[in-house]
Design a protein around this nucleic acid. Structure first.
Length: 678
DNA sequence: GTAGGGTTAG
């Protein structure tokens, strides 16, 4: 490399001293310098050239684009005394391929159309723009470009065909991609890039058999990319084992594994959560010397995280990727899944510049670990430190924390934030909003959010139906269930839990039985614990203990604590101590260390005045040293939540709190006394 | 001199 650099310098000096005053050679040299990364040298030569033409200007603009210096590229573009299509195409392509400059590319394209005669939109411009609109997913622009290409006869070269197939496929229009492919000769094409583009399109659509057929015809055409596309296609469609087979086959057929191959196969390992395979691939990666690639390093870290081996993940991370945000995100998720939030936080703090994905991983981690206070603290930190707006995924985490903490005020603020910032409300956001309002006790807000939303999937309906059921609007729940079916959505197991609980709350035995049998007969859903518990509760609340007993005996699953607890409750409501005693041993056998169960049992006996039996149960509980979790309440003051239990004096302001409470009690007594006087 | 296909984290 050094020899080449010296050679280039010698050549440049020769030109400058007039030995070969050839503008063509100098332009070539600028290009060569830029290709080797010597932008400084390219600039120096450009400055010293006695004469320049449009090629010289294009070469220097490209040199700056290559080094990602867009300020300089734009400066030279603006200063160029002469421009041609290449000048425009180069800068448009530079902007189109860099993050955050996409709008500049579009503006330049508009500007290009008002330029002089020497600047014409050509196939280079159009294919670059097709790539851009595929990246930005603006299908309407893509279609306009396609029409323009047909009109100007720019739609039939292999470059045009590839870009069109790719644009349509990435925009979700598989049929259009396919018709472009067919129009260009279909399976008779001899260009490997066109072939690979349609292979990728088939894989994206899940048409694996067709992809395999295309892959196998004209085998001699296939290159590394064809193999990588197929391997990736299998992973995308959940066929990880087949992808591994093809990966091995690729080497047998004499094709070299590259960074793309390994990145894809590592992805398969992560999905399979196979530590054994992960280690094998890790060994191959080491053998091929590919760990320097950030794609591969973070891929290996991700595999170990998904397999739950944080020790291995940590050691690869330490050696290769301490600044790799992908690697750090995988580690945060890995630690969060195990509930190690301190470790997750350590990694989060190790990243100087945090992107939205890392933030989201941290938010979800706290939600997963039920550390809701930390969710809110993190949000304040996010707002203070970042300029970017919390996106839909962060909003979902925040709303989920609000729902569990019943923080309706904060929930409303977050809702307002999504509206103000025009955050795209997809099904997940709508579901989280409806759930938050419903769990915070405001069913009418939940309802209006639901009704206004355009994006509604099964989960959104489930949340709303469950909300109605919990708030005692059983008939609305049933009505919405019917409406949901009419829209063509298929109810799932969660829908039936919601609808059965609506039935049990208002004692609709016949309807409940009808839904329960419809669930298995019409939708082939196997009932789970919650469904059985709902039915038992329904019978219990409707004073139909015989039916409850018959149902209990017929259940094909071993009764667990939830079912036994519900059954016990049914016995209590129907004042049947005999059956309660029967369930008692079984219940304590399954869940003998849960204090709440003993208390529930004791209550059954107490409600019938069987004090001896109640004492016996409580004694049994003490013998087992089982403790019932203390019920707690909380209040929101400002941005903080204060948790307390009955008679709690642990709060730092306890003195003042109890003093105020005394005052309030006194005032109430005074009011009551005053009322009595009147 | 400018353009096309296959790879990561929430």
């Amino acid at each position: 490399m050094r020899a080449l650099k010296e050679g280039l310098k010698f050549h440049a000096n020769a030109i400058k001293s007039g030995l070969t005053p050839n503008i063509f050679t100098a332009n070539q040299l600028i290009h060569l310098y830029s290709k080797l990364g010597f932008v400084g040298e390219a600039c120096k030569l450009f400055d010293e050239m006695p004469e320049r033409n449009v090629y010289t200007w294009n070469a220097i603009i490209n040199a700056h684009i290559k080094s990602q210096n867009f300020t300089a590229a734009q400066f030279f573009f603006d200063s160029a005394p002469c421009k041609d299509s290449v000048t425009y195409n180069s800068l448009i392509s530079g902007y189109a391929n860099s993050e955050g400059h996409e709008n500049m590319a579009l503006n330049l394209f508009v500007q290009m159309q008002y330029e002089s005669e020497s600047v014409k939109v050509d196939e280079f411009t159009l294919t670059t723009l097709l790539n851009l609109v595929a990246k930005l997913r603006v299908l309407c622009y893509g279609r306009q470009l396609h029409s323009y290409m047909v009109k100007t006869n720019n739609d039939s070269s292999r470059f045009a065909v590839t870009s069109l197939i790719d644009m349509y496929s990435k925009s979700g229009c598989y049929e259009d991609a396919w018709s472009v492919f067919n129009g260009s000769g279909g399976q008779g094409v001899t260009d490997v890039v066109v072939k690979n583009a349609i292979l990728a399109a088939c894989c994206r659509k899940g048409e694996l058999e067709l992809a395999q057929e295309i892959f196998s015809t004209q085998l001699e055409l296939n290159d590394n990319v064809s193999w990588n596309t197929m391997i990736s296609g299998y992973v995308q469609n959940g066929c990880e084992d087949e992808s591994i087979e093809l990966f091995k086959c690729m080497a047998d057929e004499g094709f070299n594994w590259d960074v793309h191959t390994f990145a894809t196969v590592l992805n398969a390992c992560s999905t399979l959560k196979s530590l054994k395979l992960g280690k094998e691939i890790h060994a191959w990666v080491l053998k091929e010397g590919m760990l320097a690639s950030p794609f591969i390093a973070s891929g290996i870290v991700d595999v170990y995280c998904k397999c739950g081996n944080m020790g291995y993940a940590e050691s690869v991370h330490k050696t290769f990727g301490t600044r790799n945000s992908f690697s750090i995100t995988s580690m945060i998720v890995g630690y969060s899944t195990r509930g190690s939030m301190l470790e997750a936080r350590r990694l989060f703090d190790s990243l100087a510049e945090k992107n939205i994905v890392v933030w989201t991983a941290m938010f979800s981690g706290y939600v997963k670990s039920q550390q809701y206070e930390d969710v809110f603290h993190l949000f304040r930190e996010f707002q203070n430190k970042e300029r970017t707006v919390a996106d839909a995924l962060i909003v979902v985490s925040l709303l989920s924390a609000c729902a569990t903490q019943a923080s309706i005020d904060l929930g409303k603020q977050i809702h307002a934030h999504t509206l103000r910032m025009r955050i795209k409300t997809d099904e997940k956001t709508v579901g989280a909003l409806v759930d938050m309002y419903s769990k915070c006790g405001n069913i009418s807000y939940a309802e209006s959010t639901f009704q206004r939303a355009r994006a509604k999937d099964l989960v959104v309906y489930n949340v709303m139906i469950a909300g109605y059921a919990h708030h005692g609007y059983e008939y609305e729940a049933i009505k919405l269930f019917q409406e949901m079916k009419q829209t063509g959505l298929q109810p799932d197991a969660v829908t039936f839990v919601a609808i059965l609980s609506a039935c049990r709350h208002c004692g609709l035995v016949e309807e409940g039985e009808m839904y329960f049998s419809s669930m298995t007969e019409d939708y082939a859903i196997t009932p789970e614990t919650d469904h059985y518990a709902c039915m038992l509760d329904l019978y219990g609340r409707s004073n139909q203990l015989e039916k409850a007993v018959a149902f209990f005996d017929k259940m094909p699953i071993e009764p667990d604590t939830i079912i036994l607890g519900t059954f016990m409750n049914a016995c209590k409501m129907n004042r049947n101590l005999e059956l309660a005693r029967m369930a008692e041993n079984k219940l304590l056998e399954v869940e003998g260390d849960n204090g709440a169960r003993y208390v529930q049992l004791a209550n059954v006996y107490a409600s019938e005045g069987k004090w001896d039996e109640m004492r016996r149960v409580m004694k049994r509980m003490r013998r087992k040293a089982a403790k019932k979790l203390t019920g707690r309440s909380w209040v929101h003051v400002g941005n903080d939540v204060h948790v307390f239990k009955s008679g709690d004096r642990s709060h730092s302001e306890a003195e003042a709190i109890y003093f105020t409470l005394e005052c309030l009690i006194q005032e109430l007594c005074d009011v009551l006394a005053f009322d009595n006087l009147i």
